[in-house]
Design a protein around this nucleic acid. Structure first.
Lengths: 1229, 372
DNA sequence: TGGGTGTCTAATGACAATATCTCTAACGATGGA
DNA sequence: TGCATCGTTAGAGATATAAGTAGTAGACATGCC
């Protein structure tokens, strides 16, 4: 433990050498200790009202001392007791919460009340939230009636009948109700009344007023006046927010103190004004907008940009509809027109027009169903279950979301022209849910309610850390998620219901004109046919429900502009994302975004929340913020070329051609051999698959270009989150720098930096790298570029008209971008003064192996992956290939015929994939398949490839083992440890299922929980069909095998993620722009050298520690008290010891058992001596021999017992010293 | 005459040895065959010699006195013996790929003057038949469709489980296509299969176990149950009585893997009961049976987009309110014919899209190169 | 308890089988006491 | 009114669906038999 603590501290301190991060770290620790203090005082003051503690589960939190990690005991896991009863009753109950909130939000108080009254056994922490929300809803009604009796009565009922103890929020809401009374005396009396009750229960008025999510600024002013308090009395967590808000309300906001502004007064923007802001977003939201060539980019202040982003997020659905309408009108205005030529958007408008009334109708029926609860037809019962959720949004919103979502899902899930029903239904349901949530947040903001959770901290770069620290301090208070903002996630079943209703409505109305030849008369027929239809596919004999799109619609999707058809939540942002303040607070402005992509694993979320609450994740958050603050722009010239290519329909560099599909093979005669027929069918499927891929590629490019076009004049930002291992990903899915070559080619940094001498050199090297000439030394690469200057200029000047040299590159679009950049630079009067915006990449050379080699201290391995300084870059693949080739030659010389066939055939390419996937734990058989394919390519005949591949694979594996022996032992240790853990049972486990997941903490304090469990799914009935879904809250048995095989790669990935975030933090301190794709780090050409120092430094810092030792100690601590089944041979020392122990134990217990056990031991002893006495009979005929007894092989008896977890000692570390790496220029290159 | 079973050894347990009329090597008792060892393939594997004998006697082999009997998966060879003893066929070819049975197979080969021939080729493999024909092991003749082919009889024991099921359906599909051995004319097939599978093929209109193979089988072959467990087919709906005459009784104990097995005789019809193109017929069946208990009206939606216009194409005689599984072969034919004329029918009739395929991601995002 | 047998075989981003039949438990109605 | 019985129904669990298996070999789980 001590050492881990030390390690953590070292990482922390070294990360914050100077500047802002010191400030940040300093602030954070102050903030957290302050909040601890706060918590303690609060506990003291509220001992009378015990339920004031707001923690939801009763989880014992280990005393926080900065160096222990989070451990949640088995018995405290939610769902650990009642797992996998995903029965109708359980489902109904979990839906009830969401329905309840929906009813309240839509004014159906009666139904909410009845739901509430029917819910039993709700945990108190949840119950109080439910009741608070109920009271909160009553506020409006009471104000209207000028009568608080509804609220007071309910309070009474809560306390007397239901035994629910009100909390601060409850009283805050009551007071809010009182504030709504116009009669001054009455108001004051009620306020006094509530205040007294609250005080009697040990509350502190300042705390109550500081309660987030309830009051507006005016409310607070009134309360402060009323109770004669000052801001200083307000509880610490909220004081700052409120002070700021009050101050802000007083005066016009000026640019200078923007960084201190909470979201209070959205209308008080100075500067160009709202309409200008809107106008500036024309490219994104205005249907009439058409890009003009050189539009001036208006510089926006931070605050203005923030408003723009808000507009973008809030108005985008409307904007989509506006665009459809606009396109529809233009087609209509163009006069009579062939219905077959209607544009996609025009069609969408028609669907929308037809769908809205249908939804309205459905909504009406839902309302009716709620009224007459007695006349329960089947459909009406269903309506009760989803109705309230439909009411949350307007029919227009629902219609738009439905249409957008179905378009987006096209081609997912392996369906040729459509999507899986299950996916569609759930995904749409989720969209509706998050839209409703965004609406709720917006509404609260519109009502001026202060939400503790800071909506944004916008500031200039300098003040960022300060502002964030401040906001963080606020978030640390109890304002994290106020009761009034808390919503349970909709259960999957509910999402499915809502989604299916909307989809089936859309399927009724969405039509598309279609043309066909009448097979009999041969005349052309045009029909208006459904655009979507519900069908089933068989896959492996399983039925698969799909929503198919009509081919006529598919044609549109591949060609028509997608203007307006991307949901804004999927777009880059125009301001830096909100910094991450907590696990669900950061990123986009209006949408609740989670910092981690989890896999429906409650355990992951639980650990994440705890870590977030404890402030463990501050460094991770800070790292993500760095990535999010990197500003990007579209590379206009690359975009122009790409658009030209797109429009000509030519197939160039990952843009597939229009409308040229692969041909199906001709059908063999019906009476051909079944084998031939099977082959034909397979070929057809392959062609169909290829065509489908092409189409989806085309749609994908369409999306990308559309987004790029819309953002041409924008500064863009990518909010980032992490996967469960800590690897960072940009959230916008269609278009980001992690995307393919085209995406990357289209993106440049927004900021430009002067190249300088070194920068120019790096730009040249980058050129060589994107060409694929990346195995040579740096000077050779630079020279290569200079040798090809002619081509580079040609490509830059005539990208399509010239020799198209860039197309031959490994990454053509990035190559083109570099051509442009390099040509410009070199042609400028002083190339070193050239302002470059091009990101230059430094890639880890086989990053996984680098980490393994560092962990294992492999000298040979370290050299191979460039951890060790060298004059020219080493290439592992070549290294392994050479080793294998040598072995093959030896065998060949020794007369091995397999080897003889292979002499000279073992190239880098043959082994590359296998070496690469070795890190991921590829098995012998998987590797053999890979190598078989490669051997075929090298010209080994098909019938030999299989046998030879098996032979080569064995050698490759042993070569890897010898080259990375340390790494290999670590891999083994890791997978062993994972197996032990996954099969371990907590001492208090009630049954013998494996429930323990592998959990570890990264050096940045991120708890990583492997999510692999057996999923139990059930069929759920929806409008369209039944759908097979899992209960995301269920804690199921772990999948031991998956836990084991995935742990080594996941662990390494968690390390490379750590390395990346550490590097990000370091570069940010130095003011260097930074972006990363896992193990490829990007910055300006001029800063590459600086970045290189930092990333090496980070790697050294990371690996200086005893990472493996820390891991082992963490495991030992974390799984202390767990038992696992051990076994040993009975005659081994261990086995004998166990038997002896057993015997002695039972002897003390009872004599009977004693006898039995002794007998047992005797038994065991006997076995060893039992020789096989049965002499082998010699049968006289072969048939008779068939039935002869096989002699049972002698077996060693083994002993099994439940014992403590014992992890093998770690493999000894090799001699290699991580410090050497600082001098290695090709480590990342 | 001079058959001398080897002296049973203690551990051989030959007490129940079944007496044979010819001098093949003795086999142990039924009980022993059921349990004796491991590594015996899971398939319809008979262990009761008596059952084999009864069957051999009951079935009329005379039709094939000048033909070949091709036996797939003879296993312990109980049938082979029985038929030999009863009919001494002109030529009897054993396709037995499993090594376990080699001694028994070679025993046959050795003692029948080449009339029983053993090959280790796999009956499951289409190529096997071409090989056997090419090397003259079997010599089927092209014969007119007006009569049942008497130059070849297939006698098969199916693998258990999915493989067997699949194989049976594949065999059935060769009937309308007239490929494989069916290209010689109406080659009769005797197939041992799980009773449940047989049941599914035999069930009449309205039976809820009706499925695509049911229709194909009934359209293309006359089926007769030769042997089956007692009362096994009583529960089946709307059964063809003619198929159930003189059924020989089997019991679960007759088999290595205890259970209900049925021997069905498939005699190919001169002409299938449908006139549609088989590819379309197959497509229609496959998709309609997804909603097999649903009214045809609704189920027709499975056939493609905009099926309203398809419903209009349907002949008036059809009762579209009947569930799919109540339709007869002839009615399915009518539906298919209407489908065939439907202008908006899908252009490709096979399933597109992957689900199980590798390299499904065409975008190549993230720089990860798979399967370079 | 252990041997034979069946399953799986490259990490993550990025989760998804369904219609229908059978059987049982719970529920409700009914009717006689 | 209490309650025994019968009929109905909801829901949980089971099963079929499609249909080439090539070729290897080693590890590991299975509440097996």
């Amino acid at each position: 433990m001590q050492r881990i603590a030390a390690a953590r501290r070292r990482v922390l301190t070294t990360c914050s050498l100077s500047g802002k991060s010191v400030l940040l770290a300093g602030r954070l620790s102050v903030a957290s200790s302050a909040s601890v203090a706060l918590r303690q005082t609060r506990l003291q003051s509220t001992t009378a009202a015990s339920s004031f503690a707001s923690s939801q589960q009763t989880i014992e939190i280990p005393k926080k001392t900065d160096d222990d990690f989070i451990i949640v005991r088995h018995k405290d896991m939610p769902g650990s007791s009642g797992r996998d009863n995903f029965t109708a009753k359980v489902r109904e109950r979990s839906e009830a919460f969401s329905i309840y909130y929906a009813c309240l939000a839509t004014g159906n108080v009666e139904r909410a009340k009845s739901i509430l009254s029917r819910l039993h056994n709700v945990p108190p922490a949840t119950a109080i939230k439910l009741h608070n929300q109920y009271l909160f809803t009553l506020v409006g009604e009471c104000a209207k009636a000028q009568d608080l009796s509804l609220m007071t009565k309910w309070l009474d009922k809560m306390q007397k009948e239901l035994d629910i103890v009100p909390n601060e929020t409850t009283y805050a809401i009551l007071c809010k109700g009182a504030l709504g009374l116009t009669d001054k005396d009455m108001r004051e009396m009620m306020l006094k009344n509530f205040a007294e009750m609250f005080l009697k229960n040990g509350g502190v008025l300042g705390d109550m007023i500081g309660q987030a999510g309830v009051y507006s600024v005016d409310d607070i002013k009134a309360l402060i006046d009323m109770f004669g308090l000052s801001v200083a009395n307000i509880k610490q967590g909220s004081r700052q927010v409120i002070a700021d808000a009050l101050a802000a309300a007083e005066r016009q906001v000026s640019e200078d103190d923007v960084q201190n502004i909470a979201e209070v007064a959205p209308t008080k923007v100075s500067g160009p004004g709202m309409h200008l802001l809107k106008q500036s977003l024309a490219a994104l939201i205005d249907p009439n907008y058409s890009a003009s060539e050189n539009e001036a980019r208006i510089p926006f202040s931070m605050l203005e940009s923030y408003e723009r982003q808000k507009i973008l997020e809030e108005s985008a659905l409307d904007a989509a509809v506006a665009r459809w309408k606009h396109d529809h009108e233009t087609t209509v205005n163009r006069g009579k027109l062939n219905p077959l030529k209607k544009s996609l958007n025009a069609l969408l408008w028609e669907w929308h027009q037809a769908l809205v009334p249908l939804i309205e109708d459905e909504v009406r029926r839902c309302k009716e169903a709620q009224k007459n609860t007695t006349a329960a037809s089947g459909a009406d019962v269903d309506r009760l279950a989803y109705g309230p959720c439909l009411l949350l949004l307007s029919p227009e919103q629902l219609s738009t979301i439905t249409i957008l979502e179905l378009l987006r899902l096209q081609g997912t899930g392996g369906v040729a022209e459509g999507m899986r029903v299950a996916r569609a239904v759930l995904s749409l349901g989720k969209q509706v849910e998050s839209e409703a949530q965004a609406d709720m947040l917006k509404e609260q903001a519109d009502n001026g309610i202060l939400v503790g959770d800071m909506k944004t901290i916008f500031s200039n770069e300098k003040a960022f850390a300060l502002a964030k620290a401040k906001a963080k301090a606020r978030a640390k208070g109890d304002m994290a998620t106020p009761d009034t903002e808390w919503r349970p996630d909709w259960p999957h079943t509910l999402r499915a219901r809502v989604g299916s209703v909307l989809i089936s409505l859309l399927m009724h109305v969405a039509k598309v004109p279609n043309e066909a030849d009448d097979s009999v008369t041969g005349e052309k027929l045009v029909e208006v046919t459904p655009a979507f239809y519900h069908a089933y596919q068989y896959s492996n004999g399983k039925k698969l429900g799909v929503i198919k799109m009509h081919p006529a619609l598919m044609r549109h999707l591949g060609t028509d502009p997608m203007r307006g058809n991307v949901h804004p939540r999927l777009l880059p942002m125009v301001v830096p994302p909100r910094p991450w303040l907590s696990w669900n607070n950061g990123g986009y402005l209006r949408a609740k975004t989670r910092v981690m992509r989890t896999r429906d694993a409650p355990e992951q979320l639980l650990y994440l929340k705890k870590a977030s609450d404890r402030g463990d994740l501050d460094l991770v958050f800070a790292g993500l913020d760095v990535l999010g603050r990197t500003a990007w722009a579209i590379n206009r010239r690359v975009l122009d070329v790409a658009v030209t290519v797109w429009n000509t329909g030519e197939a160039i560099a990952s843009i597939p051609a229009t409308d040229t599909n692969f041909e199906y093979p001709s059908e063999p005669p019906p009476d051909c051999d079944p084998a031939i027929r099977a082959m034909y069918v397979r070929k057809c499927k392959e062609v169909a698959h290829a065509n489908q891929n092409k189409h989806s590629l085309r749609c994908d490019v369409n999306y990308k270009l559309e987004i790029a076009r819309a953002f041409v004049n924008e500064k863009m930002y990518f909010p980032h989150n992490i996967d469960f291992r800590g690897r960072a990903y940009p959230i916008p899915p269609h278009f980001n720098h992690l995307g393919n070559d085209l995406c990357r080619g289209l993106l440049v940094f927004h900021e430009g930096k002067e190249l300088g001498e070194e920068g120019l050199r790096w730009l040249k090297i980058h050129m060589a790298n994107v060409r694929g000439f990346d195995k040579a030394s740096f000077s050779e690469r630079a020279a290569y570029t200079m040798e090809n200057l002619e081509h580079i200029f040609d490509s830059a000047d005539k990208p399509l008209g010239g020799k198209r040299w860039w197309l031959e590159a490994e990454d053509p679009w990035q190559c083109l971008a570099t051509c442009f950049e390099l040509a410009d630079a070199l042609r400028s009067p002083n190339p070193e003064k050239y302002i470059s915006r091009m990101p230059v990449h430094q890639d880890g050379t086989c990053n996984g192996l680098q980490h393994y080699a560092a962990l294992g201290g492999d000298i040979v391995g370290a050299k191979q992956v460039n951890l060790e300084p060298s004059d020219s870059p080493q290439d592992v693949y070549t290294g392994v290939a050479n080793l294998v080739a040598a072995e093959v030659e030896r065998d060949a010389a020794a007369g091995n015929s397999n080897a003889q066939e292979l002499v000279g055939k073992i190239t880098r390419k043959v082994v590359k994939q296998t070496v690469m996937t070795n890190v991921y734990g590829v098995t012998w058989i998987g590797a053999r398949d890979q190598i078989e394919g490669q051997l075929r390519d090298v010209g080994i005949p098909d019938d030999r490839a299989f046998v030879l591949a098996a032979y080569v694979t064995k050698i490759v594996f042993s070569a890897m083992k010898s080259m990375f022996s340390g790494a290999h032992m670590i891999q083994d240790w890791l997978s062993d440890a994972a197996k032990i853990i996954a099969k371990a049972h907590p001492i208090d486990a009630d049954d013998d299922t494996n429930m323990t997941a592998v959990i570890w903490t990264t050096p940045l304090n991120l708890p990583v929980v492997q999510p692999y469990r057996k999923i139990s799914r059930k069929q759920i009935k929806t409008n369209l069909q039944t759908v097979f879904i899992s209960n995301p809250d269920a804690m199921n048995e772990v999948d031991v095998r998956k836990q084991r095989t995935a742990f080594p790669p996941n662990f390494i990935h968690s390390l490379d993620a750590t390395h990346m975030l550490m590097s990000a933090l370091a570069t940010s301190e130095a003011g260097i722009t930074f972006a990363a794709v896992h193990d490829s780090y990007w910055t300006h050409a001029s800063d590459v050298d600086k970045m290189n120092v930092m990333l090496r430094d980070a790697f050294v810092r990371l690996h200086q520690d005893d990472i493996m030792g820390n891991l082992k100690r963490e495991f030992e601590e974390r799984y202390k008290g767990y038992k696992t089944q051990m076994s040993a041979l009975a005659d081994s020392a261990e086995g004998k010891a166990v038997l002896a122990q057993r015997a002695s134990k039972s002897r003390t217990k009872s004599t009977e058992a004693d006898v039995a056990d002794v007998a047992d031991v005797a038994d065991v002893a006997d076995v060893a001596d039992v020789a096989d006495v049965a002499e082998a009979a010699s049968p006289t005929s072969a048939v008779e021999a068939m039935f002869a007894e096989e002699a049972a092989p002698k077996k060693n008896k083994s002993v099994k017992w439940w014992g403590d977890l014992v992890f093998r000692p770690l493999p000894a570390k090799g001699e290699w010293d991580v410090q050497n790496l600082k001098q290695s220029q090709y480590f990342f290159s | 005459g001079d058959f001398q079973p080897t002296t049973p050894r203690r551990q051989l347990d030959m007490r129940g040895t079944q007496l044979l009329r010819t001098s093949f090597e003795a086999l142990p008792s039924q009980a022993r065959l059921s349990t004796y060892a491991t590594g015996v393939p899971k398939r319809t594997l008979m262990v009761n010699q008596d059952l084999a004998n009864r069957l051999a006697e009951a079935y009329d082999w005379s039709y094939y006195k000048n033909g070949d009997i091709l036996e797939m998966n003879p296993g312990f060879g109980l049938f082979t013996r029985a038929i030999w003893n009863v009919a001494k066929p002109r030529r009897h070819v054993l396709m037995e790929p499993h090594k376990k049975f080699i001694p028994i197979m070679e025993d046959f080969d050795a003692k029948t003057e080449g009339r029983i021939k053993y090959t280790s080729l796999e009956g499951y493999d289409w190529a096997t038949y071409d090989k056997l024909i090419a090397d003259g092991t079997i010599t089927p003749e092209n014969q007119s469709m007006e009569r049942v082919n008497d130059s070849l009889l297939l006698f098969a024991s199916m693998p258990n489980g999915a493989t067997g099921e699949a194989l049976a359906v594949q065999f059935l599909c060769t009937l309308p296509r007239r490929n494989w051995i069916q290209k010689y004319g109406r080659v009769r097939m005797l197939i041992w299969m799980k009773t449940k599978s047989a049941d599914r093929l035999l069930v009449g209109p309205g039976g809820h176990t009706r499925a695509r193979p049911t229709i194909i089988a009934q359209a293309c072959a006359d089926m007769r149950v030769i042997a089956s467990p007692k009362d096994a087919h009583m529960g089946a709906f709307n059964y063809d009585e003619a198929a159930m005459k003189d059924v020989i009784e089997t019991t679960p104990d007759d088999w290595r893997q205890r259970g209900d097995y049925t021997l069905v005789e498939f005699t190919p019809k001169e002409k299938p009961l449908f006139n549609s193109d088989f590819a379309e017929f197959d497509y229609v069946l496959r998709n309609l049976f997804i909603l097999r208990a649903t009214a045809m009206e609704k189920s027709l939606m499975m056939l493609g987009s905009g099926s309203d216009s398809l419903i209009k194409c349907m002949p008036s005689g059809l009762d579209l309110s009947k569930p799919v599984n109540a339709y007869t072969v002839e009615e399915f034919d009518q539906v298919t014919q209407a489908f065939s004329k439907w202008p908006f029918k899908p252009t490709e009739l096979f399933e597109k899209g992957w689900t199980n395929d590798r390299e499904k991601d065409p975008k190549g995002e993230n720089g990860v190169v798979k399967n370079i």
